[in-house]
Computed example of a mutant assay.
Amino acid sequence: MQRHRIVWQTAAGLCGLFLALSSPARADAIDGRWCAEDGRRMDIQGPTVITPHGSTLQGRYGRHDFAYAVPAGEPGAGQAITMRLNGETTINLWRGETTGTPEVWKRCTPVG
């Protein structure tokens, strides 16, 4: 009787571990769609960014950070944009120097 209980407890524990490891987890990476409080949006996928004004360009990608220069034709052209992941759902974004107060962007919530 005791042996059966130990077998079942072990099996249940292994099933729980398997389910925990196989369930989808949000990646701890800067990749994804980001939203500013004022409605601006930005998409980061690896070294590619779609800026809030719709330009697609390559930037300097790190798993937890991203940087690019604002392209010609957009407000602030030539200005450095630097972002750092701050938890799974927030990035801090600086324009120019990274010593001031950053803009806070959040992961966009799915529509619908």
Rank of each mutant, 00 (worst) to 15 (best):
G62K: 03
W94L: 10
D43I: 11
H64V: 05
R33F: 03
T82N: 13
R84W: 13
I6L: 11
R63G: 01
Q58W: 06
R107T: 10
G16V: 01
T90K: 14
T82K: 14
A25H: 13
F18W: 08
A67N: 10
R5Q: 05
H4R: 04
V70N: 06
G73V: 14
V111T: 00
G62W: 02
P47I: 09
L85I: 11
E103F: 09
A27C: 09
R41G: 10
A69M: 13
T82Y: 15
I91C: 00
D43Y: 15
P71H: 03
C35H: 12
G96F: 08
D28H: 13
G39L: 04
S23F: 02
G62N: 01
H64R: 09
L21G: 08
P71I: 08
A77I: 11
W8N: 02
Q9H: 04
G13F: 12
M83T: 14
L19E: 10
L14Y: 04
I50T: 15
R95S: 13
F66N: 02
L21E: 06
P71G: 08
R60L: 08
Q45K: 15
H64Q: 13
R107V: 06
G32I: 01
T56R: 12
W105A: 06
L17W: 06
A80N: 09
R107G: 06
K106H: 12
A12K: 05
G73K: 10
R3E: 02
T89D: 15
T101M: 05
Q2H: 06
Q9T: 02
A27Q: 11
R26I: 07
R41D: 08
L14G: 03
A27T: 14
C35A: 09
G46H: 05
R26M: 11
Y68E: 00
V7F: 01
Q2C: 01
